[in-house]
Design a protein around this nucleic acid. Structure first.
Length: 410
DNA sequence: TCTGGGGTCCTAGGACCC
DNA sequence: TCTGGGGTCCTAGGACCC
């Protein structure tokens, strides 16, 4: 932190909504989901989906996020299953953020239900311990949005995140929704943790470390950086050495624009027919491109992703010379990419996806059209006018208000 | 236990340029 | 001609997170 004054320690909070999808599902459906203590959010009982969020009551049965719905129902057969209420989740997420913005100069959205707050410079404003401020923020979020957040705090994003995890007011724990780790207490706090509990130490890295006999933070603390380097290489050793000591100087940054937009779908049954895949592709392009325009963005890179029946995932992408927004261009490129993927391996597919990246703020349609060439990948202003009209209808009548012919006859 | 949908970031190799 | 090195862009794949 070269810009920080010597000795200053940062004041960072992580606000993490409690059982966010479950809480929102109950809000939008008070008579149904709202009345079901055993509630699983993620998909219908028959879907090939996974648990996105589960109520505390179902967790007692062993239900966990990312578990398949089928398995969750084997553990907890009486649970009610509902799909994720995406619209409402976006709305509530924005509401929570708006409250947090009133308390901190910098708010970084880390996901739909997590936000980092940098309270640097607010010491004079809030003349109280950080924990007291956190409690007031928590109360404000509850009053305005009706949702509960847990707030963890410390001198880094890593410590704030770990503190929030430990501070979750789960039934049967003493935690009350706010936990601040004081400056200087980071190492002692980290010592209680397993490596699996540290963010960015995922299954693969855990397995490598376990092979070397390391499963907990103290297991790693006993080795110097040279020893770790011999085992892991310089970069990862240095990273792990700092990580287990709670050292993390990543800044809290307000994020401006999305870096990519993607829409994908796992089919109820694998699809082997190329024509059927092409129809699905068109539906995905229609959704992705519409959302792209809704955000006022244009994309230069188009990616098609396919997951074969055996879960092997492949992708192909192409970057165009100019950013595009319209379905016609995106669909043609995506179609070529799909053809390429299918000719390399033509087996039943379980998932198809379309991604848009290298995003730029949509330059005004008509100006770009002046330079549009006869090139098939360039858009005309008529293309853009048409696309916007389609979006307007879709906004009013829902996603199926206008669809390319034959798409929804399933 | 048969594995969602939305993302972010990193790496490595090849093309291409100077 | 027998061969360097750096920078940037593109593509594919993979780890990870909620």
């Amino acid at each position: 932190m070269p810009d920080e004054p010597q000795g200053a320690s940062r004041r960072i909070l992580l606000a993490d909504a409690d059982a966010f999808f479950v809480a929102v599902a109950r809000m939008v459906d008070p008579e149904g989901a709202g009345q079901a203590p055993l509630l699983i959010v993620g998909g219908s009982r028959e879907s090939r989906g996974v648990v996105c969020s589960a109520s505390y009551e179902t967790r007692k049965f062993g239900v966990r996020s990312a578990m398949s719905i089928a398995q969750a129902l084997r553990l907890c057969p009486d649970a009610m299953c509902v799909p994720v209420p995406r619209r409402a989740c976006s709305t509530k997420s924005a509401e929570i953020r708006a409250v947090l913005e009133q308390w901190a100069p910098i708010v970084e959205g880390a996901s739909i239900d997590e936000w980092y707050l940098d309270l640097g410079g607010t010491e004079g404003l809030y003349r109280e311990p950080l924990a007291a401020t956190a409690r007031r923020i928590r109360q404000a979020v509850r009053e305005v949005t009706g949702l509960s957040v847990t707030i963890g705090g410390g001198t880094s994003k890593l410590v704030a995140k770990l503190a929030a995890e430990r501070g979750k007011p789960k039934p049967g724990t003493a935690a009350d929704g706010v936990l601040i780790i004081d400056a200087g207490g980071e190492a002692e706090f980290l010592r209680q943790l397993t490596l699996a509990e540290i963010p960015l130490i995922g299954p693969k890295f855990q397995e490598r470390l376990a092979t070397l006999g390391m499963r907990t933070v103290p297991d790693v603390l006993q080795y110097d950086v040279e020893t770790l380097t011999r085992w892991l290489g310089e970069r990862e050793a240095a990273w792990l050495f700092r990580r287990v000591r709670g050292i993390d100087d990543a800044p809290v940054e307000r994020r401006l624009e999305a870096k990519s937009i993607s829409r994908d779908e796992t089919f109820a049954e694998d699809i082997r027919d190329d024509d059927e895949l092409r129809r699905e592709l068109l539906a995905l392009v229609t959704r992705a491109a519409s959302d792209l325009r809704a955000d006022g963005l244009a994309a230069r890179t188009i990616t098609v992703r396919i997951r074969d029946f055996d879960f092997r995932t492949r992708q192909a992408s192409r970057t165009l010379a100019e950013p595009v927004v319209w379905d016609r261009v995106i669909h043609r490129v995506a179609g070529e990419l799909l053809r390429k993927l299918r000719s390399a391996r033509r087996v039943p597919a379980r998932l198809l996806g379309v991604g848009l990246s290298s995003l730029a703020v949509d330059p005004e349609a008509d100006q770009l059209a002046l330079f549009a060439m006869a090139d098939a990948t360039a858009e005309t202003s008529r293309d853009r006018t048409l696309a916007r009209a389609v979006d307007a209808v879709r906004d009013r009548f829902g996603p199926k208000g206008i669809m390319p012919a034959n798409l929804w006859e399933r």
